[in-house]
Computed example of a mutant assay.
Amino acid sequence: MTAVHVEEAGTDGPLLLCLHGIGSSSAAFAPQLAGLAGQVRVVAWDAPGYGRSPDPDTPLDLDGFADAAADVIRSYGSSAHVLGVSWGGVIAVRLAVRHPRLVASLVLADSSAGSGTEEAKAAGMRARADELAALGPRAFAERRGPRLVSDLAPAALVEQVVDTMAGAVRLPGYGYAAAAMAGADLRPELAAVTAPALVVCGDRDTVTGVEASQLLAGALHRSAFVIVKDAGHLANQEQPGRFNAWVLSHLHIVTH
């Protein structure tokens, strides 16, 4: 079992496991931990090798990250609803394929089928570990963080995103994640997902973009697709009120 740090809020209601993006940590889910705790038991992880989680003993591929998430679910009970943002959504899909009984439903936010769908995207993702090694976490975050939110985002949110990334990413964990993302092409396995899914995307997401989310929604058997207005790649942070309302609506539908 891979040990990870988690943040928790709420004691009643369905269990919601939150998986952050490739440049983030559990801190990205502060709006969900605060906003959903009255109705949902929210658990947000620092992925292995991120934030306050220890570095993994051996290299992890996408299956390894998915299995680590499965271990978290088992530690709380029999199943969970899984919310994955960007890279976290890629992990969530693989988790749902490998461990279908553990995943009651999915929320895939500003996600994709992986960077392995196009060679240029895969190459760019593979280069990120060297970029982090050359720049260090703070400069890396200052270069990459601002593009994750829309041009409408307040300066305070941009600063928060950069600070979260700077405190979260390090090698070797980020390198394992980037390699896993570069090698991921989930398109052939989306049809195997049995869990109902809500696919959410900010209308101003320029990182993965609306089309990538539409691909997910169209290939999954049981899915709904929602656009969140005035949000970039981190819709859950940029428009938390709207985002949380959709999550609660989804959970109400799939649990009743």
Score class of each variant (00 low, 15 high):
Leu171Arg: 10
Lys121Pro: 00
Glu118Asn: 14
Arg98Trp: 13
Leu171Ala: 01
Phe65Lys: 01
Ala133Phe: 09
Arg170Asp: 03
Met165Leu: 10
Met165Val: 10
Gln160Asn: 05
Ala69His: 12
Ala70Ile: 12
Ser150Tyr: 03
Ile73Ser: 02
Leu135Val: 12
Pro100Ile: 07
Ser75Ile: 13
His99Glu: 05
Asp55Leu: 12
Asp67Asn: 10
Ala156Ser: 15
Arg143Thr: 05
Arg74His: 07
Ala168Asp: 08
Thr117Ile: 12
Val85Pro: 00
Ala141Leu: 08
Val82Met: 06
Arg74Tyr: 00
Ala69Asn: 08
Leu108Arg: 03
Ala129Ser: 12
Ala134Ile: 06
Val149His: 02
Arg128Pro: 00
Leu171Pro: 10
Glu159Cys: 08
Thr164Ile: 14
Gly89Arg: 03
Leu106Val: 09
Ala92Lys: 01
Asp63Ser: 15
Ala127Val: 04
Ala139Gly: 11
Gln160Lys: 04
Thr117Trp: 02
Met165Cys: 15
Gly167Trp: 09
Ala129Ile: 04
Asp61Phe: 00
Ala120Tyr: 02
Pro56Leu: 04
Ala134Glu: 15
Leu62Ser: 02
Ala134Met: 11
Asp61Thr: 09
Val149Leu: 08
Lys121Gln: 06
Gly173Cys: 09
Leu106Thr: 08
Glu131Pro: 04
Phe65Asp: 13
Ala139Asn: 04
Arg128Lys: 09
Asp57Ser: 07
Leu171Val: 05
Arg170Lys: 09
Asp110Glu: 12
Pro56Tyr: 07
Leu102Asn: 05
Val97Lys: 02
